[in-house]
Write a protein that binds this DNA or RNA. Structure first.
Lengths: 131, 131
DNA sequence: TTACCTGCAAACCATTTGCAGATCC
DNA sequence: GGATCTGCAAATGGTTTGCAGGTAA
């Protein structure tokens, strides 16, 4: 069990993440929180982001390209990554709509499939228009 | 277009990858190639791995945890990552069996879905037995 | 001969960590 | 008062890169 004490820095990070749809990197979070708490350090941002992930209050995304990103919505959902501008967007997929792929994967596999992580790639609506 | 000259180091890396099922990290590749070419440098291993990826002869996997891994089989297929021992294994999924998820993702999305990357998580057969 | 390739070492980038002091409860 | 938190700066780990000398074609 993880014990925590109140911290205004952590509160601010949580609030920022819950209100943005940008799926920011740790550094972007740092930039934003610094507007309110100019003395906050990048180390504190990383520590709190990891703590919030451990508490299950936010989610960490590792899309492969570059840095990890963070999502204030801890409920299971899927993400899209634009191959042109690298933006990350939530997808509007019915919860459970992809659960069946675990069974497909489990056929002919001797271990135990417990979950999956999926990223969809392509062009976001902006990049689709701009060329 | 990428132009290349023969290199015994690159040949050796390609051969090692085509023959192992370990999905090794760059460092593991380095260890193995060093048995035959003790003077090879890690930089050269990285350069050749990236070159082979660009040539489409191997595939780079980014399972999120720790370092990237490399797969000598460039044909599209899916992977399993063990949450206990972190091993990576090929899954025996019929080619195309998951193509339909792109259409699920595209419903209600304004951009253009061109592909996806999926990792399945759970316990490998070994770790399933050993507890 | 001239790309391309190599080893080496330094640089880079994202992330983590040790420390001494501050803060919450 | 004691555990948790902070800023700072240094350390870490994975990967890339500049350079000067080698090698394939």
């Amino acid at each position: 069990m993880i014990t925590t004490k109140f911290s205004r820095q952590r509160e601010s990070i949580k609030e920022y993440l819950s209100q943005t749809k940008e799926h920011p990197t740790a550094d972007t979070v740092y930039m934003h929180i610094r507007e309110k708490y100019p003395n906050i350090s990048l180390g504190t941002v990383y520590r709190n982001l990891n703590l919030l992930v451990d508490l299950g209050e936010i989610i960490k995304l590792s899309p492969g390209n570059g840095s990890d990103r963070f999502d204030g919505n801890p409920l299971p959902h899927y993400h899209f990554v634009c191959t042109e501008c690298s933006c990350v967007q939530d997808l509007d997929i019915v919860p459970g709509a992809l659960d069946h792929i675990n069974r497909i994967a489990e056929a002919g596999f001797n271990g135990e499939i417990q979950g999956h992580s999926v990223f969809f790639y392509g062009k976001c609506s902006n990049c689709k228009l701009n060329n």
